[in-house]
Amino acid sequence: MENLLRVRDLKTSFFTYAGEVRAVDGVSFEVAVGEAVAIVGESGCGKSVTAMSLLRLIPEPGKVLAGSVELGGRDLLRLKEREMRHVRGNDISMVFQDPMTSLNPVLTIGTQLAEAIRQHQKVEKDKARARAIETLEMVKIPSPDKRLAQYPHQLSGGMRQRVMMAMALSCHPRLVIADEPTTSLDVTIQAQIIELLKEIKKATGMSIILITHNLGVVAGLATRVIVMYAGKIVEYGPVKEIYQIPQHPYTWGLLKSVPRLDAAEKRRLVPIYGQPPDLLKPPAGCRFHPRCDHAMKVCREKEAPFVPVNGNGEHRVACWLQHPAAPAVAGFKKGVPA
């Protein structure tokens, strides 16, 4: 598959009074054309900061320190701000988590949509209006011409999220970053939005980066999964392998700590003990070692290399348990799918 986006060794830090918080610390991945990649992890693991770094929207006191973000042969991190503005919306757009606060409460839906369109493309006002109606139809908002005159407070949460999606899609971007797009919505509305994302992806061939902590949503939408912990990628691979043969104890823990709706019997949940680390002073070695049941001496001292799990190298993990000298762990399948 042809790559649309290639991120290499991205590092973003926040310089606070307490010191440097390394929110994203050396992250590399690719997104292919027409693919949906999910970034999963818990609060503060750096998944949103990664997304914001791609768009160069990191607020003070944060800074992208190193790395490259290549989109169609251009490194976005080296573009002038004026050029970057052209990339945002046209090439990459974003759907935010909270549709309540990301729409302007004093402007109508129509004004906000037309603003987004006219900001990025040179079109006349009435043309922008027609385009706005078109995009509202695309996200299946009933009677879109009437909606244009309405204000955000007149819409429900699900409808607002559709408007946000319409705005993100209005300039036909090649990549949409959806940052927890369904977290504040009810499950039946979440199902509507996920279904819609799938349909639009199929119809337009755009790529999606889905940021979420909901492993269920990922399973239904993504083709590849990136698992982040404390600013680093600990594992990535095709969605089926991540769920069937998770290799990192953290991924493993994430899957075991949530009950499955289709579980046939009660099984005690297996929590991950302790707390995620303070990124002002992350632990030495593997950052997950203080919470890991299988931590060895080497885990406390040296960071684990990112190694391929099977032959094709599509599934990789940073864990010392992959080392040939590491002891076998019960219930843990190392390497190639059985």
Binding site: S156, G158, M159, V187, T188, I189, Q190, A191, Q192, I194, E195, N214, L215, G216, V217, V218, A219, G220, V239, K240, Y243, Q244, L255, V258, R260, L261, D262
Partner: peptide, 26 residues
């Protein structure tokens, strides 16, 4: 029935097979 079908299950194999009942409206 609709509520149950809307809840995603963390298993790509199961998700592929599932048929959702999408509730219309709010």
């Amino acid at each position: 029935t609709a509520l149950l079908s809307a809840i995603p299950i963390p298993d790509p194999g199961v998700e592929e097979e599932r048929r959702r009942i999408i509730l219309e409206g709010d």
